[in-house]
Amino acid sequence: MSQQDSIFEERRGAMTGLAYRMLGSRADAEDVVQDAWIRWRGVAAGEVANPAGFLNKVVTRLCLDRLKSARARREVYVGEWLPEPVVDDDHERLGEDLSVAFLLALERLTPLERAAFLLHDVFDLPFAEVAKTLGRGEAACRQLAARAREHVKAGKPRYRPTAEEEQRLTSAFLTAALSGDESLLRGILAQDVVLHADGGGVVSANLNPVSGLEKAVRLLMGIKKKWPAPEGTTARLARINGAPGIVLSHDGVVFQTMGLEIADGRIAAVYTMRNPQKLARLNS
């Protein structure tokens, strides 16, 4: 492997992590990194004094270009949009804090705010480097990051459950959801629980978030009665975007993931992914 190839491979995880946070799609993130690889190979060895800065700039600008079309697609997206799930150890290669709540908070930012915040606050680039990457002045980049920081701070989970708490609540939720145990559901869901789901208009899923214990229980019980899991369904506990969750498969094909957000000993949010396009990576 050449030195140029080695430099790129050393940066691959960081670049993929940056692109995933920018785009909310692992598949799109990998496409961006592949495009960055093509551009990197077009640079003469030793020509770039700061390879990390060069690659960050390439990936960021490729993501900003993709976000233009992505935003247009999301305006006509059927139902709620959720990021493509990252399951099990995959999140370790992409860096910390990949929670769905965090990614949804990023979605509410403008593309430039998102880029400035991620580059400085998550990937520790000085504002001088951020300014070069975005083609803006340092003061403007500081303002972009500051605005983003306030929005993201409001959306990030503040509670850190213990491993025992995660195991107990995730196992109980799986049991309750599959068996239709209403009393068990009421014992583990928070009063202000929110159920999110993404079917992408391809498969059935609630189109809008469902908030509150009573509505959540009615929805989950209704799903159990009207759409019971098909015979041959298997379920396993997993890490989804670094949080506890469940992966459901039928005949070896993943058809649903459920990520849980836990707060104060209860399940505060459930993020259900049913869109097969966003689950394709798990079946490849």
Rank of each mutant, 00 (worst) to 15 (best):
residue 194 V to P: 00
residue 248 L to N: 08
residue 34 Q to R: 12
residue 150 E to H: 08
residue 33 V to T: 09
residue 251 D to G: 11
residue 70 A to M: 05
residue 1 M to I: 14
residue 57 K to E: 14
residue 121 D to W: 09
residue 65 D to M: 10
residue 175 T to C: 12
residue 177 A to D: 14
residue 46 G to C: 07
residue 1 M to G: 15
residue 46 G to T: 04
residue 92 E to V: 12
residue 181 D to S: 08
residue 203 V to P: 01
residue 30 E to M: 09
residue 205 A to H: 01
residue 13 G to I: 10
residue 177 A to I: 15
residue 113 E to V: 04
residue 51 P to Q: 09
residue 212 G to A: 06
residue 154 A to R: 11
residue 108 R to Y: 00
residue 137 G to R: 04
residue 132 K to C: 00
residue 37 W to M: 14
residue 172 A to N: 10
residue 4 Q to E: 15
residue 48 V to I: 15
residue 39 R to P: 05
residue 6 S to T: 15
residue 10 E to W: 10
residue 267 I to K: 03
residue 128 A to Y: 01
residue 52 A to F: 07
residue 63 C to Q: 03
residue 200 G to S: 05
residue 86 V to I: 15
residue 85 P to Q: 09
residue 94 L to P: 07
residue 29 A to D: 00
residue 117 F to W: 12
residue 12 R to K: 13
residue 272 T to E: 10
residue 153 K to P: 06
residue 228 P to N: 07
residue 173 F to W: 09
residue 283 N to S: 10
residue 195 L to D: 05
residue 250 H to W: 11
residue 183 S to Q: 14
residue 54 F to Q: 10
residue 62 L to F: 11
residue 48 V to W: 04
residue 29 A to P: 04
residue 105 A to H: 00
residue 6 S to D: 15
residue 40 W to I: 12
residue 24 G to S: 05
residue 118 L to V: 08
residue 253 V to R: 11
residue 50 N to Y: 13
residue 166 E to M: 13
residue 76 V to E: 10
residue 73 R to N: 00
residue 151 H to M: 11
residue 275 N to E: 07
residue 104 L to S: 01
residue 281 R to G: 02
residue 205 A to K: 03
residue 207 L to A: 08
residue 45 A to H: 12
residue 6 S to V: 15
residue 171 S to V: 13
residue 122 V to W: 01
residue 82 L to Q: 06
residue 183 S to Y: 08
residue 113 E to Q: 11
residue 63 C to K: 05
residue 272 T to L: 07
residue 251 D to T: 13
residue 248 L to E: 11
residue 66 R to M: 02
residue 38 I to E: 10
residue 156 K to R: 14
residue 249 S to E: 14
residue 170 T to P: 02
residue 171 S to P: 04
residue 65 D to H: 09
residue 268 A to L: 02
residue 113 E to Y: 05
residue 198 D to T: 07
residue 60 T to G: 05
residue 111 P to G: 08
residue 151 H to R: 12
residue 104 L to T: 03
residue 235 A to E: 07
residue 42 G to F: 07
residue 211 S to N: 08
residue 219 L to D: 05
residue 147 R to L: 15
residue 31 D to R: 07
residue 225 K to S: 11
residue 57 K to V: 11
residue 46 G to R: 13
residue 128 A to W: 00
residue 59 V to A: 07
residue 160 R to P: 02
residue 87 V to E: 06
residue 196 H to L: 04
residue 175 T to E: 15
residue 190 A to G: 03
residue 147 R to S: 13
residue 180 G to R: 09
residue 277 Q to G: 00
residue 195 L to I: 12
residue 139 A to E: 15
residue 209 P to R: 08
residue 16 T to K: 04
residue 11 R to Y: 14
residue 245 G to R: 07
residue 243 A to S: 11
residue 37 W to S: 09
residue 52 A to G: 12
residue 254 V to E: 08
residue 117 F to C: 03
residue 9 E to S: 14
residue 120 H to M: 05
residue 195 L to T: 02
residue 132 K to M: 04
residue 66 R to H: 03
residue 258 M to N: 08
residue 183 S to N: 15
residue 187 G to P: 05
residue 117 F to L: 06
residue 196 H to W: 12
residue 144 L to W: 06
residue 26 R to Q: 03
residue 79 G to C: 10
residue 170 T to D: 04
residue 35 D to G: 00
residue 36 A to P: 02
residue 160 R to V: 14
residue 78 V to G: 00
residue 141 C to K: 05
residue 35 D to P: 03
residue 50 N to D: 14
residue 185 L to Q: 04
residue 137 G to S: 10
